[in-house]
Simulated scan of single mutants.
Amino acid sequence: MTVQNQIAPTSPHRFLQPVGWVQAKGYANGMLAEGRTVFTGGLIGWNALQQFEHDDLVGQFEQTLRNIVAVLETAGARPEHLVRLTWYITDKAEYLSNLKQIGAAYRRVIGRHFPAMAVVQVAGLMEDAAKVEIEATAVIPHG
């Protein structure tokens, strides 16, 4: 199978789209990147003092993304360097009923950069009040 490489205008990495596949919406099927790799732990939607300011999924989701960006910045990385996000959510129904708000929050924090992603529903997270946890991988290009 031939692979069509696409470069998004805001990313230094290649988005991998197999020829003949329907374009993924809101994520990439794969990413090709070279450089220094940044891995985050599973980050959740509390603030720097480990306090939740939001009880709802959307509020926690946006804070989680802000936390990811803060960790990336300590390595000199930016949101467009993200190559993979793995989301763990506790309530699929709440997620699906808030897709527009989640998408808007994503674009506010990350922009229009959609790396490879997976969303998984889990029975619970280590912090009982947490509704979402996200692991991120970014690659800072050489140069």
Rank of each mutant, 00 (worst) to 15 (best):
T86I: 15
R36M: 14
E80R: 11
F61K: 00
Q51P: 05
I102Y: 00
L65T: 00
A129M: 10
N98A: 15
N98H: 14
E135I: 04
E94F: 03
H81E: 13
T137Q: 15
Y88I: 00
A138S: 12
I134D: 02
A77G: 12
R108Y: 01
A116G: 02
Q50H: 12
K131E: 08
T37S: 06
H113T: 15
A70K: 13
G45Q: 05
G124C: 07
T40N: 03
E73I: 07
D55N: 09
I102R: 00
P115T: 11
A93K: 13
A123D: 12
F61W: 07
A123L: 09
N47Y: 09
R84A: 14
W46S: 01
T64N: 02
Y106K: 10
A75R: 12
V109A: 07
T64C: 11
V109C: 09
Q121P: 06
F114V: 08
Y88S: 08
G41M: 05
V132F: 01
N67R: 13
Q51E: 15
A129D: 13
E127C: 08
E80I: 05
A75G: 09
D56S: 08
G76M: 11
R66Y: 02
A118S: 15
T40V: 06
E135L: 12
E94A: 15
A130E: 02
M126V: 07
T86D: 14
H113E: 04
R108I: 13
A105M: 08
A138H: 05
N29Y: 14
M31E: 06
Q121I: 01
G103W: 06
A116K: 15
A130G: 07
I89Y: 00
A123S: 11
T90E: 02
N98F: 07
R84I: 08
L85R: 02
W46V: 00
N98D: 06
H81L: 08
G76P: 13
A138K: 07
A33G: 10
N67T: 07
G45P: 03
G124H: 09
E94H: 10
D56K: 08
L32K: 12
I102T: 00
T40M: 08
A116N: 14
G59E: 01
T64K: 03
Y27T: 02
E34P: 02
D55H: 09
